[in-house]
Design a protein around this nucleic acid. Structure first.
Lengths: 358, 358
DNA sequence: TGGCACCATTTGATCGATCCAGCAACCGGG
DNA sequence: CCCGGTTGCTGGATCGATCAAATGGTGCCA
């Protein structure tokens, strides 16, 4: 059992150094309460002296847990202001660290169209592994997943749930009342209500909506904040709604059409991307957001913060979302009884010049 | 050695199923060439039938390699258009997958100021572990690191190099001629040269520079593209340069000052953040980028793409950078002789309306 | 004082893969 | 016909941790 000095210390090395058994060192690391105070100190000193850190691979093998959570990152769509992942990912990494986990990134395997084909038959049994998850799961590389891609009915969530894989979703299980997995979401409807109230408080009455095509759960949720609040306030929504793709170009065209025909004094958008399109339309009409027309976006992206004028936008509490996700993940992996299956957080409104000149 | 059906299959399970030994199955997975053709097929069929994937933890333990690379993500600075990490990270994850690696994210341990204190004494021996790297390294959780934070003289790189940790840097070892680690970088100077040439080609002669304080290697590199090319073209740079923080507010103030006093017809900025500040100043003067003054940024951030007017910007080939980094990483971990220690890639110019109206 | 529970610690087995030495079968050359 | 070399595969040992069971020592109660 001779061990060259200089090689990485192991439990056995430390045990020899401290004059105790391997198991005692293990306990010093994982269950300090089990040791007598003086023994604990002696072992800790040996650990410090040798600069020992437990070998992750060995621990993972024995405990059947990797303390890694998988997060799939999909290609960022250009021409979209939607770079909110940055904030979320960072917060997720931090929360995970505090809970003793690390975040492992992965992508789909490079065979495009695979996941979509699964998504195409929503009711079917998904025997096909959802791209990328399967390998990591079977090889025990990760303990659990964080699923963020909740658009389009979330085939990943269905597949993972069927396999009994531990995961937490960022996003409600829209339309799937029987879903059993934990999730965290942001109340998009409430965010738009904030926007409408803010505008109404400034005296606006003709407040228009630029949003996405029907069929997007998230889009309909956000839109309902507009319709409901407008009606509650006795304001008309008639002919004041536009629907299309989530692109700058559609935002631009929709703004032109609405401004040409309906003379709204304010525009609320389902995303910052659309709002940036509105800015473009306004520039083409020599108008300025905030002075001539109020504009509000959704996501509080970096673009909203740095553009001119600053774009008032609904800000999702992504940091808090990450914290809650990690909390759920911890409960899940500790097989704790989950107090609540889902949790909805409330966004705030970042007010900038696009809605309040001066 | 009885094994419940339904439990995760192991090498032994597969070996029994195929009627061979464990080692043969292992070879079928890792060195298929060693097996006789018919044996290989028999084993592969057993693998498929059972849905076997090698257990990562066991493999990592035995081979002393985790096939993970660590990437530290630091808090995104708000009020900055610099969200280029998104593009880079995604590409890094993809390239890594193709090379058989995964990307593990981590952050500093939450004790602020620690890394800075190391950075503060550039020549000293860094006995203090650089925040976050040490633990992952000693616990053998990762095989190598990708270091991106090359601003401010890169204390991480120095520390990692001293410890003999395998890593590849995104960014040159500025000012450290003796550095031995592999790196990949983008030629910022050449990017600014592209910008100056583009503007000069449009007839501009009074082209100003808005950049960072002295002391930033990257900042000086980019700036040298402006000074050198201007002089090569016989254009004056006198009083046409502004220096300050990388913020929207400084970009705004600098633009006002330059436009008030020097009447430049074009402004080249060291970052998109600064360029967004220029947009703000222009709006305050009822001027428009592209029509009244040409503006060029650096990074081709999402903000540059979606703002109005679109911002012409130097685009770093981040996807290619990631590919090169992973290639170097592979060579490094395979102990291959490295052909070249560093590699510099050339950026392109994304031309939009801010420099060419109509 | 015997018996029992409890505490702090040790010892051997184990997780699932790969490394390594070894074995049988086969091949060609002298 | 024997021998060294190659091919194809086997089985025991091993990586470094934790689990489960066993150990010796102590205190408390009957």
């Amino acid at each position: 059992m001779s061990r060259r000095t200089g090689s990485t210390p192991t439990l056995a090395t430390v045990a020899a150094e401290a004059g105790v058994s391997r198991q005692t060192v293990s306990n010093a690391v994982n269950n300090p309460g089990l040791l007598r105070a003086d023994t604990l100190i002696r072992v800790q000193r040996a650990i410090d002296r040798l600069g020992y850190s437990p070998n992750r691979a060995a621990r993972n093998l024995r405990t059947r847990a990797s303390h890694l959570v998988g997060l799939r990152v999909d290609p960022a769509v250009e021409d979209s202001a939607n770079a909110l992942m940055d904030r979320f990912v960072h917060s997720l990494v931090e929360s995970s660290r505090d809970a003793g986990y690390h975040v492992l990134l992965f992508t789909a395997s490079g065979q495009p169209g695979r996941e979509d084909s699964v998504a195409a038959r929503p009711g079917a049994h998904h025997m096909e592994p959802v791209d990328g998850y399967d390998e990591l799961l079977r090889s025990a590389a990760v303990d659990a997943f964080v699923v963020t891609d909740t658009y389009r009915g979330n085939p990943q969530a269905v597949w993972l749930a069927e396999r009994g894989v531990p995961f937490v979703a960022f996003g409600r299980p829209w339309g799937d009342a029987g879903a059993q997995h934990p999730w965290v979401d942001v109340d998009g409807r409430a965010g738009v209500v904030l926007a409408v109230d803010h505008l109404a408080g400034l005296g606006h009455e003709r407040i228009a909506w630029i949003g996405w095509q029907k069929g997007s759960w998230i889009g309909e949720d956000r839109r309902s904040g507009w319709t409901d609040r407008m009606h509650e306030r006795g304001l008309s929504t008639s002919r004041l709604s536009a629907r299309g793709d989530d692109t700058v170009e559609f935002g631009r065209r929709a703004a032109h059409a609405l401004l040409d025909n309906e003379a709204p004094t304010a525009l609320v958008c389902a995303s910052d991307t659309l709002a940036m399109g509105v800015f473009r339309a306004l520039a083409e009409r020599s108008a300025i957001a905030g002075r001539d027309v109020a504009v509000i976006g959704f996501d509080d992206s970096i673009a909203a913060q740095v553009c001119t004028p600053g774009l008032t936008s609904v800000r999702q509490p992504l940091e808090q979302v990450a914290v809650e996700i990690v909390r759920s993940l911890g409960d899940l992996l500790a097989h704790k009884q989950i107090a609540e299956q889902g949790r909805i957080l409330v966004p705030t409104l970042s007010v900038r010049a696009s809605s309040s000149p001066g």
